[in-house]
Design a protein around this nucleic acid. Structure first.
Lengths: 335, 335
DNA sequence: TTGTAGGCGTTATCAT
DNA sequence: ATGATAACGCCTACAA
C-alpha cells in the first residue's frame, strides 16, 4: 500500500498542470466534469491526500482547535473533550488539549503557545483565579475566536456553552421542598465563578417558588477543595437551626461533605440529605449515595462548543453576536 | 504587543541574508559569535519565533506525537496523558490524543489520520480486540516509531512501558495469604491481553511462594464490563469451596463484583475480601472499600513512554533495541 | 476550460 | 564567515 504522492505526481500522471489538479480537487467551478472525474479517480486510486503541513503553511490555517480545561481527571471534562474532539475530527480539525490545573500562569502560557501554533480557534474553561482575561482578548484581536464553556469570565459578552445550573438548582430546591425540607443549605463554589452566581440565583428563585424564606446563613462558599468544603460544612452545621438538606456545587463536594460528617461522627437523625451536580458514574458504588444528583450533558456541551467555535471560524470577519447556549440538567434520584 | 515577524524581516533589519539569520538562530557552528548575538538580540526584542507551519513543512516533521488510548474517562489514562503531554511540551512537541473506545476500526482510522498528519511518533495502548497490528507495523515501516504503554500486542518485540503487575499480583497474594486466606480467587482481564498473562504469572508464583496450591477453578476472565465481571463472580462463588478473597484486574472490577454480591444478597460472613489495581481516588468515599488496592504510577508511566518515544525519534535511523520499562505498583491497604 | 508562474517562511547546498 | 539560490507541496492570480 501506497507511496506518498504529491499534486505534481498526479499532474504528471494525468498529463495536466498541477493547478488543474488542485482546482479539480478543490471543486473549482471552472473545471470540466470530465477532468474533475479523472482527477478524482486517480486520487482515490492512489490514496492521495494533500500534505497537511503544506496546506497549513500555504493557507495560514492549522486546522487545529486549542482546548484549555482545568483537569482531565475531572469526569466532566474528560467526556466533554471527547465531544469536542469527535466533532472537530468530523470537520477535519485536530485538537490540542491543555490542562491549566487552576494555574493562571499555565493558562496564559498555553494561550501564547496556541497563538504561536496558529490554532484556528480556542475552547476554554477558565481557571478559578482568572479574572483578567487580556490573554484571551489578545487572541480575539489576532483573529482567533474564543468560545468559553462551563466557566466563563464575568463582565463580558462572550460566546458561551454550559449547563443550565440555574434551572437545575431550582429543580433541586423544588425536589427537596417536596420532600418536606424547610431548611435547605447550599454550598456554592468560589464567589468569582459565574456558575456560582447562577446557582445562587436558582437557589433564591427556587426558594421563593416553594414559599420558603431566604436565609443568608444557609449558603456557604467552598473553593471546591476538600478543606474548603469542610470549612463550609462547619459553618452550616454550627448554625442554631442547621440545614436538613444541602445542595452542592458538584457531586464530589457533596461526597467530601458527607465524609466529613461521617468522620466527625456528626451524623444527625434523620441524616442531612445532599444533592450535587454531575451524577458521577461512581455514585452507583456507594452504600449511602447522595439523595440525588443533577446530571449534566457533558458530551453535548463539548460538542456544541466545538460547533459554535467552528461557526465563528467559518464566519471569519463577519462578526457574530455573542450567544449563550444552555443545556438542561436532569435531576436523578439516587435512593 | 508584537506584529508577527518573519526571518526575512529580521534579515532586512539586520542587513544580513536570511540564511545567515536562520543559521544564527539554529546555532550553526560557522556563524561568528558577534553575528549570532546581534541576531539573537533582535529576535528576542521583537519576540520572534519561527512559523511552526513553515518549519514543519520544510523539515517534514510535525513536532507532534500521536497518542491513542482506550478512554479518557479512565482515571489511569487521564493522568497518564497528563504525564505524556507535560514532557512533550517541555521538548517543544504537541500531542494529538485519540480515544479508540475499544474499537479496532477507530484505532486503525487514527493510525491513518496520524500518518497523514505526519506525526513524529506514536504512543499507544491498544484496544482489547487488537491482535493484528499491521497498522502499527505500517507506521514503523514509514519511519514513525511506536511505543506501547500499558497494553501491548503479544508475540512481538516492542518498546513498552507499564506497571509491574506481575510483582504487584505477587504482593497481593502475599498480603492475602498473610491475612490467613487459603482460597484466593482471581478475576483476570480478557485472555488476549498481555497484562492478563502477567497477572496470572504473578498469581501462580505468588501462590507458590506462600505454599498455597494452584487451583484453576479459582481464576476467571472478565471482559472488564460489569456483565463480564458478574459472570466471573458467578463462576467463582458457585464453587463448592469458593474463594474468601479475590484479586481483580482493576479496582472497578472489584467494585462491580462487590456490588453484585450486595445486590444478590450473597454476602458471606466473613465477607469476601477484594484487592484491585488502580487505587482510584474515589475509593475513599466508600463505606466498604476493597481491602486494598495496588496503586500504579500513571503519570510516571505516561512520561516515561514519551521519553522513550522521543529517544527513538531522536535516534532516527540508528535502530534501538526494544526495551520494556516496568514501574512498581504499591499495595495500599484501605481498611 | 486549462496552464503558467510566483510565492508562502524556512532550511540546506553550494558558492563566495 | 556569509550570501545567493533553490526547494519543500500547495494555492491562486493571471494569462492563454
Amino acid at each position: 500500500m501506497s507511496e506518498t504522492y504529491t499534486l505534481k505526481d498526479l499532474a504528471r500522471m494525468l498529463r495536466m498542470s498541477p493547478s488543474t489538479v488542485s482546482k479539480a480537487l478543490n471543486d473549482y467551478p471552472t473545471i470540466s466534469d470530465m477532468t474533475r472525474q479523472r482527477v478524482r479517480e486517480l486520487a482515490d486510486r492512489l490514496n492521495y491526500s494533500p500534505d497537511p503541513a503544506a496546506v497549513s503553511f500555504k493557507r495560514k490555517k492549522s486546522f487545529t482547535l486549542g482546548v484549555i480545561i482545568p483537569n482531565l481527571t475531572d469526569h466532566f471534562y474528560a467526556i466533554a473533550v471527547g465531544g469536542i474532539e469527535e466533532y472537530a475530527m468530523q470537520q477535519g480539525y485536530k485538537c490540542m488539549v491543555c490542562q491549566h490545573f487552576e494555574d493562571l500562569e499555565r493558562e496564559r502560557d498555553f494561550c501564547r503557545m496556541l497563538e504561536r501554533n496558529k490554532v484556528d480557534g480556542l475552547i476554554v474553561s477558565i481557571s478559578r483565579s482568572t479574572t483578567d482575561i487580556s490573554h484571551f482578548r489578545h487572541l480575539e484581536e489576532r483573529g482567533i475566536p474564543v468560545v468559553y464553556f462551563v466557566r466563563r469570565p464575568g463582565a463580558e459578552e462572550t460566546f458561551y456553552v454550559t449547563s443550565n445550573v440555574y434551572q437545575g438548582t431550582i429543580d433541586a430546591v423544588g425536589y427537596l421542598a417536596g420532600k418536606g425540607h424547610q431548611r435547605i443549605g447550599h454550598i456554592l463554589g468560589p464567589p468569582g465563578l459565574i456558575a456560582t452566581a447562577d446557582r445562587l440565583n436558582g437557589y433564591m428563585d427556587g426558594l421563593q417558588r416553594c414559599g420558603l424564606p431566604w436565609d443568608g446563613a444557609l449558603t456557604a462558599n467552598s473553593d471546591l477543595s476538600e478543606a474548603g468544603t469542610i470549612q463550609a460544612m462547619e459553618q452550616l452545621t454550627s448554625l442554631p437551626d442547621p440545614p436538613t438538606a444541602i445542595i452542592t456545587f458538584k457531586d464530589y463536594v457533596a461526597l467530601d461533605a458527607m465524609l466529613h460528617l461521617k468522620k466527625t461522627k456528626a451524623t444527625s437523625t434523620p441524616p442531612i440529605e445532599f444533592i450535587g451536580f454531575g451524577n458521577l458514574p461512581m455514585l452507583r458504588y456507594l452504600d449511602n449515595p447522595p439523595l440525588a444528583s443533577l446530571e449534566e450533558q457533558c458530551a453535548a456541551i463539548g460538542r456544541r462548543s466545538a460547533e459554535l467555535l467552528m461557526s465563528r471560524i467559518t464566519a471569519g470577519n463577519n462578526v457574530m453576536i455573542p450567544e449563550a447556549v444552555l443545556f438542561d440538567c436532569e435531576l436523578k434520584v439516587l435512593k
